[in-house]
Structures are given as structure tokens and as C-alpha cells.
Design a protein around this nucleic acid. Structure first.
Lengths: 114, 114
DNA sequence: AAATAATACCCAATTTTCTTATGTATATAA
DNA sequence: TTATATACATAAGAAAATTGGGTATTATTT
């Protein structure tokens, strides 16, 4: 995850949101997508990603399909019904948290302003 | 910290920034300030706060003065020189992280817009 | 008067979530 | 042929929180 100790707790939200937008993705693809979107600033490590994916699957948020592509195994993840609900929940949690952070850290901040 | 598992990693930044703004504060005061600024939405637990304060002190970011107020002991914290530098560092880290988060989670997002 | 809440500090056990390091395997580029 | 990219995975350890205690004084409720 590079030198960022701030992801703690938001990795699940990232995974769920990307899967909402992309319908189905495999693990490696997720790491590359995040790297691309943040211009290399956030790198999700495999040691964090795979356990998180397995946990979300165990909780019934994701389902998997394994596919063979060029002799390589890919494990595609997609949202379940529960997973779809969870995206909204996690997203509004995160948004309210970021709002609260700004209220604490930026005394000038008002909602709706840059 | 109430029902918010997202603070992970940002508590130090919160402490340092509040001390930058308020010159000196004691632990309990910090919990109340955060509660007030977020209208009760973020509650810093003492089990998280005190270890964090002690760690920052051990790292040389904070100094303490103990005072007696109404037969109660208060431990006031303030920023050291190193602590003052650290505030800026932590704040820009956090800002860039939040920016990256938005790039991942909000495909429409552009910097400088609400 | 007694119980509860608020103020004010603290620690220990446990849990969650990450980092770091390692392992397996195929394909491609230097 | 060696390194890089693709693609999965696990395990040991560290960091940072939660949960649940403990001590003590003061203020407020019942």
C-alpha cells in the first residue's frame, strides 16, 4: 500500500465501490486500477488485498468465478445483493467521516465548498 | 471512538492539529472538542487517546505540564518544535490521501470542486 | 442521602487491519 | 537467462484501534 497508513478501514470500501462500477474484477486488476486512478500514489499490497477479498466473500458480500486466461487462473469477484447494499452503507459512512475530519482539521471548512 | 472504524491512522493528525490551533490542551478536553466539532458523531475513546498522546510525547512531538485544578489533576500537552513540523507533514499526507480516495471512489470528482 | 453522571487520568487483553516476506506458476522482454 | 509482469496465496509480526476494566473528585439527579 506504499507509505500510507491511512487506508486502514477504507480498503473494503474501495473494493466494494470498484466492483459496483465495474461489475466484475479480479484481484490483480483491482491493484492496477487503484494504482492507475491515483497515479501510483496508492499501491494496494497483495497481503492486504487477498485477505480482504476472502473476508468479504466469507461475509457474503462477494461471489467468485474462476476463469482460465492464457493458462493463467483468474478469480473474478462480483457483488452479491448484500454486497450492493453494503456499498451504499460504506460510502455514506466514509463520506460522513471525511466531512467530520474536515470539521475537525479545517476550522474554515463549510460543506459544499472546495 | 464510537462506531467509526475509519479513524485508524488519523488520530495522531487530529491531536497534532488541535494542539496547533489551541496551543495547549489536556486529554479530556481533546475528546470534548472533537465531540463538539462533529456534533457527537466522532467520540475519541480514552483507550485510543491516551496511548496516542504518550506515544507522541515519547517521540518528542509533545511536552506536558501537570496542573492541579479543583483538586483534579490535568495534564496539558503542547507541541514541541518537532511537533510543529509534524503537523504540516501529517496534514499534507492526509490531504493527499483524501484526494486519492476521492479519485478512486468518485469518478466524477475533480480537484477544486465541491 | 444515595446514586448517577461528568470530569480526569490510566492500563491490559484482545481484535482488526495492515506490512513484510515468502511461495507457486506462467509469459514476456532485456 | 535473468528480470519484470501477470496472477494467485499464506504467515509472522507490527500498529492502532476496541473493549473493559481501575482510581479519584465533583456535580447533578432522584
Amino acid at each position: 500500500m506504499s507509505n500510507n497508513n491511512l487506508i486502514k478501514g477504507s480498503l473494503q470500501t474501495i473494493i466494494l465501490k470498484l466492483l459496483e462500477e465495474n461489475d466484475r474484477m479480479y484481484g490483480y486488476e483491482i491493484t492496477q486500477k487503484v494504482k492507475e486512478l491515483t497515479e501510483g500514489e496508492i499501491k494496494i499490497t497483495e497481503g492486504a488485498l487477498y485477505p480482504a477479498l476472502h473476508k468479504l466473500e466469507a461475509e457474503g458480500m462477494l461471489t467468485t468465478e474462476i476463469e482460465q486466461v492464457d493458462n493463467r487462473v483468474r478469480k473474478y469477484y462480483s457483488l452479491t445483493k448484500d454486497g450492493q447494499k453494503e456499498v451504499s452503507a460504506k460510502m455514506s459512512e466514509l463520506q460522513s467521516f471525511v466531512g467530520n475530519l474536515q470539521r475537525i482539521l479545517d476550522p474554515e471548512w463549510k460543506p459544499g465548498l472546495a
